[in-house]
Design a binder for these strands. Structure first.
Lengths: 219, 219
DNA sequence: CCTTTCAGTGAACGACTGTTCACCCAAAGT
DNA sequence: ACTTTGGGTGAACAGTCGTTCACTGAAAGG
């Protein structure tokens, strides 16, 4: 470091910047082709380096995929953690939807990546997404169990309700991702729909009575 | 035609058989690589013909993709039509889920294809799926509007409810597709969950009151 | 100042892609 | 019986893919 204000860019800083540029370019490009259709040469061209220079930062294309998955999953875990933390009984719905929408909007590329690879990617990535959502679903079921009125619910009903909520959140996230950017009116419409749907679900849950023993419905 | 019982396979029959074999192989192979990752040579090898023979049946790979989309969409429209037709007020839920599950199971490859291309494919296919689901959602909203107890609902609430139901159905279909084949126990668990979720939604709908004018909830 | 380190370069590899062409030969038409 | 039709064949094309290699030139270390 010099005493001057002028910034001296060290070599490792330049390297890290290039590595991040590769990750950013790969994330952008994979939005159109998918992770499987990602091309080393297209990434290199987008970054502004020659294809072989890529190997100074990653051992292979596959390792780049792993790094992308890690980066995107950090965003996914972040939003799930935020939603779980802000569990205020009085305003769960509005807060949850707000947090979800804000995170998806801010890290749009990451969630687009996850949404794509969740169903279209290689099996390992699909399983990882499912595992993450499954964990959140169980935690959510525990949170919901503490709400008043559901103390007498069967564990299975709790799980089914949590599954319904998570599914609705996935739908909402997909809707936001799919909506063209720079259209706040469409986004607010999605938010309104999501909130109303969650409210309907909650009303349904409030009027729900768990069967203590499963049996055939009497006609 | 001979008077004998022996089957004489005409040339056009052989051609149609090969064409269908190409479609089947493409559907199977695209389940692992996606439509974008489909390779002409891999399809030809699976069918048992030389790569160039492919062009006796399709003008290009892109046209094969279009044919696959058409084939899969026929299955999608079929299940949506079936569900809408069997709208019996007393047993909507069980019937709907049963029809959905049966169709998805029987045409598993088609729905896997749609699920993949719905989020991962090229924009045209994505828009086509969204359009199809949007049509069904509107029709479903009209059907729901005729059920007792929802006559005084606002049109927007009807649309939101239909959107929630469609979303739940998409989740259920994805769950069935994702579940490993030959596991009827997992499948029945998915069916149970789907039915229970729809029942919760219906209970929520039954106890829902549309706001005539949107306003802030009184604390 | 001299040496070492190393991100980036450019050529080359084998394998793969979609597509075209001339050719073959059995079935269909006359 | 002769001709035409047409699905299937095999070679070849230009292009892309991921990856390896020897090399350069400037920054970092001594």
């Amino acid at each position: 470091m010099t005493g001057m204000e002028q910034r001296v860019v060290t070599r490792s800083e330049r390297k890290e910047a290039t590595r991040q540029a590769i990750l950013d370019a790969a994330l952008t490009l994979s939005a159109q082709t998918g992770l499987a259709g990602l091309s080393l040469r297209s990434v290199a061209k987008a970054v502004g380096i020659v294809p072989t220079a890529f190997y100074r930062h990653f051992d292979s294309i596959e390792e780049l995929g792993v790094a992308l998955v890690d980066e995107a999953f950090a965003s996914l875990r972040q939003v799930l953690r935020d939603i779980r933390r802000e569990m205020d009984i009085t305003r769960v719905i509005d807060d949850s939807v707000t947090i979800l929408v804000r995170n998806v909007r801010e890290r749009r590329a990451h969630f687009l990546f996850i949404a794509r690879e969740r169903v279209g990617g290689i099996t390992a990535v699909q399983d990882a997404v499912r595992h993450e959502l499954g964990l959140f679903e169980r935690e959510l079921a525990m949170d919901v169990a503490r709400l008043p009125g559901v103390e007498k619910w069967s564990p299975e009903d709790l799980r089914v309700l949590a599954n319904l909520i998570v599914g609705s959140m996935v739908s909402t996230a997909e809707a936001i991702i799919t909506a063209p950017p720079g259209r706040p009116d469409l986004e607010r419409e999605i938010v309104r729909t999501a909130e109303r749907q969650l409210r309907m679900v909650v009303v349904g849950a409030a009027n729900w009575v768990s069967d203590p023993e499963p049996g055939i419905d009497p006609d």
